[in-house]
Design a protein around this nucleic acid. Structure first.
Length: 297
DNA sequence: AGTGGGACCTGTCCGC
DNA sequence: TGCGGACAGGTCCCAC
């Protein structure tokens, strides 16, 4: 599922339940996801209180009063759902599509929320590309997960200037550079395709071609920076994208997939005003790229 | 140094 | 209806 807008949506969905909550106990239903769970995972969390929930790139971070930060990554197919007093009294409103998928409920957090309600937060991940880890707060920024991460595209750091600095002299395709988490952290396959289409830029051109000889950002670089932010913000507003069976924490669907201009629209008409092109699919770095060869150059 | 390709997993969909 | 292959939102690791 999850690129930055989906992880942000999950964070916002979980925060009211998680923040200030006491973790009474944890069910860890298997020894590993993508990686083994850390030593004494259940013991180190049981009895801890969650100070705050935050996001860095595509990672969710639950800061605890034990000095450990619970780091969670959703991989390709991870999702959370919440079961609480409210969902039991009004199952329709908060029901998550259940059934055959429940065998992939790998972790259950049993919580007493800040409002003193009992709640369960359940992590489900069919492909098990996600993972959880516990890292002492003081070691977080130097931890391998985080130390090489690039800038946050939603902060004030992303601009034509910063893109020019990151891309100068880079011969790799623009799409690969945007997916490189060491440069910009949090972009994934969907939103890179969408932001490039919005800017009329080909995914195959060299990243360095957005930089002038004097090292200044081109007009396209300035526009791309703005369009990346705008694409992500639009997606967050829409509650993220729900592809396949992914849902938000309350079981509702995101809506941004209806706004895709190119992603997963191979052969369909380009949505650029006045453009008569069709969306193409090519493979770059073993991953699908969708773009309109007529209006993206 | 920086990049492309394969690997990690399960589920789904499409063509035969 | 069954079966094989391709494909899926991410990222790590290893050859070039």
């Amino acid at each position: 599922m999850p690129e930055l807008p989906e992880v942000e949506t999950v964070k916002r969905g979980l925060a009211p339940t998680f923040e200030g909550a006491l973790i009474e106990t944890v069910d860890q239903n298997r020894p590993d996801l993508r990686f083994p769970f850390p030593e004494r995972f259940v013991d180190r969390l049981s009895g801890a209180r969650v100070n705050a929930l935050s996001r860095r790139s595509k990672y969710l971070l639950a800061d605890t009063d034990r000095g450990d930060v619970l780091v969670m990554h959703l991989g390709m197919s991870g999702s959370f759902r919440i079961e609480n007093d409210l969902s039991q009294s009004a199952p329709g409103a908060f029901a998550h599509p259940k059934g055959k998928n429940e065998k992939h409920d790998h972790v259950v957090f049993h919580l007493e929320t800040a409002a003193r309600n009992e709640a369960r937060v359940i992590y489900n991940d069919p492909r098990r590309f996600g993972f959880m880890d516990l890292i002492p707060r003081a070691e977080l920024s130097e931890h391998p997960y985080f130390k090489d991460l690039g800038l946050e595209p939603l902060g004030n750091d992303l601009s034509g200037e910063t893109l020019a600095r990151l891309f100068q002299g880079r011969k790799s395709p623009l799409k690969a550079a945007l997916l490189n988490q060491k440069l910009i952290a949090g972009l994934g396959n969907i939103y890179v395709c969408e932001a490039l289409w919005r800017t009329g830029l080909s995914p195959t051109r060299a990243a360095g071609s957005l930089v002038t000889k004097s090292g200044k950002p081109s007009k396209a670089a300035v526009e791309l920076a703005a369009n990346i932010r705008e694409t992500l913000q639009d997606a967050i507003k829409a509650g993220g994208s729900s592809l396949r069976d992914h849902t938000q924490t309350d079981g509702t669907l995101g809506y941004f997939q209806h706004s895709f201009a190119v992603y997963d629209r191979e052969g369909e008409a380009c949505r650029t005003k006045g453009c008569t092109g069709a969306v193409n699919r090519i493979v770059q770095s073993n991953r699908s790229t969708f773009f309109c060869p007529r209006c993206q150059s």
